[in-house]
């Protein structure tokens, strides 16, 4: 049965105008269909879609805490298995709730091989509490805890944690990075992730108009630039076979990183110094030099 025309995610929620997270969620639900239970970590998505007594979810949905979405999903999956029920169990977590505080629960879920699809919507900071840096915040981004000034003109000094590779190294059934702005690739990966049994992990880029400081109408355009500059590469790994990682998308011609930086206030300071832009370009080029041979559309 194809449920693409149906909406399992209702309007009337409180996510900011132009937030990308609901685009990801509505499509994951359309492709999963109604036979689904969702677990949500604390974060913007959870807070803004379930302001009591209202909910935007049209499938059963559970929130427990910030750090344990993967543990709660594991428990639901174990119960479903005991009852002999076959259904989609999907966890949604932000980057804080996945890459940092929920990482232990996620690692355990994947190691035990629970039949769960975990979707990280990565807006690259703790947005719901006011834009604090996380392990997923990229090098050079301003946040309220990686402030930019004379003492530190760069912003965040550490690179982004390669969380999807780390989860793949657990020998997860399926791991992929995805970008809703590269829509066909995104959709294919969601469908593929749903088709497998076992622990699956999708790392999806999710622009935040408030924290990235951009015009809300530019959400999809900026996310597209993330992959067209090579900053957010799109790949997949089956059964933890990182040697055979498959890069699924490559622009015909890479755009310079400036194009991604320019429309976002969180990177404005980098543009003032060509050295910083060059440094970021070098990081991107180094990734592609190391892994680019995995391109296999």
């Amino acid at each position: 049965m194809n449920y693409e025309k149906e909406e399992f995610f209702a309007p009337g929620h409180g996510m900011c105008a132009g937030c990308a997270a609901p685009i990801i969620v509505k499509w994951v639900l359309k492709l999963a269909g109604p036979n689904t239970i969702v677990v949500n970590a604390t974060g913007c998505l959870e807070v803004a879609t379930t302001a009591y007594p209202h909910t935007s979810w049209r499938v059963p949905w559970l929130h427990v805490a910030f750090e344990n979405a993967a543990a709660a999903a594991s428990g639901i999956e174990a119960a479903a298995r005991a009852k002999g029920e076959k259904l989609n169990i999907i966890a949604f977590g932000g980057d804080g709730g996945t890459v940092d505080i929920g990482f232990q629960a996620l690692s355990g879920m994947v190691e035990r091989g629970h039949n769960v699809l975990y979707v990280l919507y990565d807006n690259e900071a703790y947005m719901n509490t006011g834009i604090q840096r996380s392990g997923a915040t990229p090098w050079g981004a301003w946040t309220t805890t990686s402030k930019v000034g004379n003492a530190n003109p760069i912003g965040k000094l550490q690179p982004k944690k390669p969380v999807a590779r780390i989860i793949a190294a657990h020998n997860a059934k399926y791991v992929a990075t995805a970008n809703p702005a590269i829509f066909n690739d995104f959709k294919k990966k969601v469908e593929k992730a749903l088709s497998y049994d076992g622990a699956r992990f999708l790392h999806v880029i999710s622009s935040c108009t408030t924290g990235w400081r951009h015009d809300p109408s530019k959400t999809v355009e900026i996310m597209k630039l993330a992959s067209d500059t090579g900053i957010f590469p799109l790949w997949e790994v089956v059964d933890g076979d990182l040697e055979n990682m498959r890069i699924t998308y490559k622009p015909k011609k890479f755009k310079p990183v400036e194009e991604y930086l320019k429309p976002q206030g969180r990177f404005r300071h980098l543009l003032k110094n060509p050295e910083y832009v060059k440094k970021l370009q070098e990081q991107v080029d180094a990734w592609w030099a190391k892994y680019g041979h995995h391109y296999n559309p």
Binding site: A10, H54, T55
Partner: peptide, 25 residues
């Protein structure tokens, strides 16, 4: 609503449609 449901359970799927967010525009 004056009483919070046990476990803050919301029993009506998708009832956020009661919030007409078009006023934000």
């Amino acid at each position: 609503m004056d009483v919070i449901t046990r476990g803050a359970v919301i029993t009506e799927p998708g009832n956020s449609v009661e919030n007409k967010t078009g006023t934000w525009r």
